[in-house]
């Protein structure tokens, strides 16, 4: 698993990259009450705002970690946004992306580096 400085986790699944937010991020957000997901088959550039998360406190965005195509979104989050707090690293993934070259993920933090950043 790789991590971004924006507290996203990236997991490679075959040819795809699955994107979610870390437990730390979910805690900081507070109870999530609304998630707006992107359309599938959307081409996105790095740092495009692709997901809106509203918690009881505030709205925040999830940025596309890399350039690529959104190929699947987690519809479960539309009906049950609280899943982001319950299982941020598992069931509450946000979207899957197809990217040209998986090696671009190498530049992101590994778990130790991420833990150091938030400590």
């Amino acid at each position: 698993m790789k991590y971004t400085k924006d507290h996203e986790w990236l997991r490679v699944e075959g040819e795809l990259v699955v994107v979610g937010i870390t437990e730390y991020a979910a805690q900081q957000l507070g109870d999530v009450v609304f998630v707006e997901l992107p359309e599938v088959e959307t081409q996105v550039a790095q740092d495009d705002e692709v997901v809106v998360i509203e918690s009881v406190k505030a709205a925040s965005d999830i940025l596309a970690p890399v350039e690529g195509e959104i190929v699947e979104v987690n519809e479960k989050l539309s009906d049950n946004p609280g899943l982001v707090n319950e299982d941020p690293l598992g069931d509450a993934w946000f979207f899957k992306m197809k990217i040209d070259d998986l090696s671009v993920l190498d530049e992101f933090m590994d778990e130790d580096e991420y833990n150091e950043m938030i400590s």
Partner: peptide, 9 residues
């Protein structure tokens, strides 16, 4: 602003 229970609960 909140306790461990969280705002919603």
């Amino acid at each position: 602003v909140q306790y461990p229970m969280g705002v919603l609960k």
